[in-house]
Design a protein around this nucleic acid. Structure first.
Lengths: 221, 221
DNA sequence: ACAGAATATGAGCGAACATTCGCATTTGAT
DNA sequence: ATCAAATGCGAATGTTCGCTCATATTCTGT
């Protein structure tokens, strides 16, 4: 009965089986989010599905939101793993190929558990994870900018900041929307078409400085 | 006391002052959404801010969600008014100018009460308005496609469907993100720069069919 | 085998909310 | 002036849900 008041729910973790409990809880949260929706995702239900009791839940998580946050973190890490893997070598590729690769990576990343991705994307504001998400975006965006600086010679843009924003935003939106809302656009070999178009979009933008009034494009030096 | 049971909350409206009540409720909902957030937006609070009683609220709205839905509809209509106004004459403009105009319209549309727009964008999934939003997107998207068909001769794309998706998605994302998350990008005369870049992005995509391996662009016929 | 720490349990408390219903007040027509 | 319908009121009700705590079970080192 040497029970010191564990009033404030702890977050400190595990020595053996508690690991399993934590995993089960996070896994259950993800499953419920996908299959039953955010509203049905109550602490009691999570515990039930995880096969543990609510009490145990509160041993490791201060509340429902932190459970969802854990799911988000887990998902994001999985995505980053995909991205890092794909990013290898891209830095030294010439623009056209690099862009094609980047769009492909975007598609691939969004394909990581799309149903979960969609729910999370929709419910992130609710959990106050927006800040982290913006940070994440800014990261990609900075990475992109670094690439552009490195390849400045091949480009015909003067404002790299703006160009990074334009490209990163477009690629993100394109892949996000395609995967989540137009899945049939990616069935069969169609995904190649999207990648091709996306790459062409940003490549043209980066390499072609604009139109002279007749409809001509200039060629990079 | 000829009181027939009004149990089921009605939605039928007004003959005079009830109009004011309904307006006050919707207006209060919008104000609370912006200033206090979705979570604080309870029926009681809405009634309080609107200066009416909860009972009256339930006379006209079956519940909190329908209030939010009303706000959404109202906002969307305002946006559509802006868009329609801007769209006049665009249909017959040549590609480059049309695109510039379209991006400008996107910026303008998102500037309609950006704070409300942001909250709504974040909370729409919660209210089950996603279907309508998708329909709305598809509308713009169809409009865009119609434009492309009309100007097919000036273009160098073979898949109009795909091209519409690429352009509409990019413009939407660009303007949305710029207005809501990078407001300083539009202060001063900077908005011109964004419009210029966005227009160049899609125009280049539509008119330049792609690259030959050396980095050349072809010129439209 | 034993003690104490770690972990697990789940009924139940309490706060927040949505919603109702009996009644009061206003409006519009006669 | 009078009445019925429309509108408005808000204390009271019921439900949902997060969260706690007294207790039970398991684990680890000795």
């Amino acid at each position: 009965m040497a029970r010191r008041p564990l009033t404030k729910p702890r977050k400190i973790a595990s020595q053996s089986r508690s690991r399993a409990t934590v995993d089960a809880l996070v896994e259950a949260t993800a499953r419920i989010l996908v299959q039953e929706g955010f509203d049905k995702t109550s602490t009691n239900r999570i515990a039930e599905v995880a096969g543990v009791s609510v009490g145990s839940l509160y041993q490791y998580f201060p509340g429902k939101d932190s459970l969802v946050a854990a799911v988000i973190d887990r998902h994001r890490e999985e995505i980053m793993r995909t991205v890092r893997k794909g990013l290898a070598g891209v830095f030294d590729l010439p623009v056209e190929r690099a862009m094609r690769k980047l769009v492909a990576i975007g598609v691939e990343a969004h394909r990581t558990d799309p149903r979960l991705h969609r729910v999370l994307a929709e419910q992130i504001p609710r959990v106050g994870k927006l800040k982290e998400l913006e940070a994440f975006s800014r990261g990609n965006y900075a990475l992109f900018r670094a690439y552009l600086e490195h390849h400045r010679a091949e480009l015909r843009v003067d404002n790299l900041e703006l160009a990074s924003f334009v490209c990163a935003t477009s690629i993100e939106a394109l892949t996000h929307n395609a995967v989540l809302y137009h899945p049939r656009m990616l069935s069969d070999g169609m995904s190649g078409a999207l990648i091709e178009e996306g790459a062409r979009l940003v490549t043209g933008y980066l390499k072609g400085k604009g139109f002279v009034d007749g409809g001509f494009m200039k060629t990079p030096a």
